[in-house]
Amino acid sequence: MNRSEVMHFVKSTMTQKKDFPPFKAGDTIRVSYKIIEGNKERIQHFQGVVLQRKGSYTTETFTIRKMSGNIGVERIMPISSPFIEEITVMKRGVVRRARIFYLRALKGKKAKIKEKKF
């Protein structure tokens, strides 16, 4: 086995790859993740636009942005985090880039992403 094969073996055996629907930058998704408070566990949701997906395979992360009032809130989440319960794709957006950081500078109507028509 060469080095990359060994790395792939370790990643695939040490971390569980979860089955989420495919999503990309520009999509609006809802992430349901577990929160542990003391010894209680509950589910919280975070809904927003995906800015980017970064990395590969089990160590991949994604950045998700929402507007809380008029303040932008971003979260970076590892896709194979054991705390993520579910990812639901709410809207498919039409964007021409894989990383849509330009969205941070836009406000109001300009920050709206065109929805994909099927």
Partner: peptide, 14 residues
């Protein structure tokens, strides 16, 4: 040395 990666422990820490 083969390389670096990250794994999750029992409590979910990366």
């Amino acid at each position: 040395k083969i390389g670096m990666t990250s794994i999750y422990d029992a409590s979910g820490k990366n």
